[in-house]
Design a protein around this nucleic acid. Structure first.
Lengths: 210, 210
DNA sequence: GTCTATAACCTGATAGAC
DNA sequence: GTCTATCAGGTTATAGAC
């Protein structure tokens, strides 16, 4: 992106990136305009187009940074087979909770963009090599199922359960706040109370019924 | 909507309604233009504006019809306490499966519009008296929890589990098709295989641990 | 690099002929 | 009722001055 500039990563450029990231996550691609980004970055439209010629290039410049954290480092925790599955799952849930506490609209962003442009989304995940990383984890899980330490269940259904339970309250947070928070509880408290239910249900699927 | 017309519900008008419904569900409010609707209905923009003066009025004219089926009639099945909870839950899941088989993008529509305009969405549900209906069902469930026939669990968490598990595969269907359908299976088959997992997890939450 | 000015386009919406 | 013609506003994007 730096054309004839070898100084420290341009201050204006990083300001633009940050603005674009925040706005795209908050409102999605379609409902974020280049004017919005320029305004938030403190410059005007033409200057924005100087750095990123089209809206599409602007989006591609930030989408990687948005998606990168969704397979947290702690994911390797899942492969530490000396720990009981309950503790490992708890660690992963905690990692996602930490991520979402900083970025409550991230799940909605991903779901929205999957529906708008699936290939772009999956292509980016591939470029980030997150699919390769995922395959390693899957192989490790399947080995544990073979050995009988974990109950056998198709990986796709394990993923659907886990991410479904994890992400549903955030996808519906506006409705939940309106409908279920008539008492004094905050949404953050609700999320914390929800955590053991995720864990319980995932363990129902994974723990052998001996 | 019929100004000075007391004949049978205008054919063009119903064609417009159908077109608008399909497009709003498919692409959402923001990414559906009045031109799109006019084209699909086989007329042009001004004619469309003759029937529904603004885009907002157009949306309000169809949103009720879109949301009406999401609390299926069969919901009263949940209150037939002579049946075991497993059979009742199965009936409800089947009802939603039937609805979604005709309208696979309906869950995405609802989630997207919740995020775009929560109050409009909830306001419409209120106008349709679906919230009143829901309250009756909730009271019935809580009575069964009091009696010990069902395990005690906050209703909001029961809802989050149920709708999360039910709706997640449809929200992510484009990604699932791309990632998990390398074998010969169809997405419809995947949904059928998924059904027992929904049931199993909901029963884990609801059935007393005696 | 950042601005002003402007082009080309698409959107929602209305006026007025038929 | 449905069309043609037209408008105002917002969008992406570029040309050219500084």
């Amino acid at each position: 992106m730096n054309t004839t500039n070898n100084s420290t990563p341009n201050d204006t450029e990083t300001r633009i990136i940050e603005a674009a990231k925040a706005l795209f996550i908050e409102k999605g691609y379609a409902e974020t305009s280049m004017s919005d980004i320029a305004a938030r970055a403190g410059i005007n439209r033409p200057a924005l187009h100087y750095y990123f010629r089209t809206k599409d290039k602007m989006f591609h410049a930030v989408i990687g940074g948005i998606l990168a954290p969704i397979v947290p480092h702690v994911y390797e925790l899942l492969m530490q087979k000396e720990l009981p599955i309950s503790m490992r799952m708890e660690g992963i849930i905690d990692a996602y909770y930490h991520l979402f506490s900083q970025n409550p609209r991230l799940p909605m962003f991903i779901v929205r963009e999957i529906n708008r442009d699936t290939r772009m989304l999956l292509g980016t995940l591939h470029e980030l090599q997150l699919d390769r990383k995922a395959r390693v984890v899957i192989a490790s899980l399947e080995a544990e199922m073979d050995s009988g330490r974990l109950n056998r269940i198709p990986i796709k259904f394990l993923f659907m359960s886990f991410y479904g339970l994890l992400v549903t309250p955030l996808l519906m947070q506006d409705a939940i706040k309106e409908v279920f928070l008539d008492d004094g509880n905050s949404f953050e408290q609700l999320l914390l109370q929800w955590k053991p239910y995720i864990l319980k249900q995932i363990l129902t699927l994974l723990q052998p019924t001996t």
